[in-house]
């Protein structure tokens, strides 16, 4: 199960809905190929360390998505380091999946927002 945890610094744990990690990974790879470490760091940094990707979730997710054909992987030499990493990049099927997941997420977020609005007002 992909779970995303808040960093230890903040006391509150943020658990996201199942399938959200897939979307975040796809979105991250939209900017170009990246290896597992970069993907995890990117998600962590862009959310100001609110979302910390657990490695126990990241790698199973990456492999599952590779099998589903959403990602393609290749061992490549890193530019700044003299060693190889397994770089993942989006496939056309992965792009379509990202669009699907984003629209589903927006629907969900909007629905949740509708439920929360009266409570915030009152």
């Amino acid at each position: 199960m992909p779970t995303i945890m808040a960093p230890k610094k903040t006391p509150s744990r943020t658990e996201l809905l199942q399938g959200t990690l897939d979307m975040l990974i796809l979105r991250t790879l939209l900017f170009g190929p990246a290896h597992g470490h970069q993907i995890a760091k990117h998600i962590q940094r862009t959310t100001d360390d609110v979302l910390q990707v657990e490695h126990g979730s990241l790698y199973p997710a990456l492999h599952r998505m590779e099998r589903k054909g959403w990602l393609a992987a290749k061992w490549e030499l890193a530019k700044d380091r003299n060693r190889e990493f397994k770089y993942y990049r989006l496939t056309p099927a992965g792009r379509k999946q990202l669009v699907r997941e984003e629209s589903r997420w927006k629907q969900l977020a909007a629905a949740v927002a509708t439920v929360l609005r009266p409570a915030q007002e009152g």
Partner: peptide
């Protein structure tokens, strides 16, 4: 920080 790497490997294997 990485956690139990054997467990990670097992999770990935399960995906396979």
């Amino acid at each position: 920080a990485f956690g139990n790497s054997t467990l990670v490997q097992e999770d990935v294997r399960e995906v396979w």
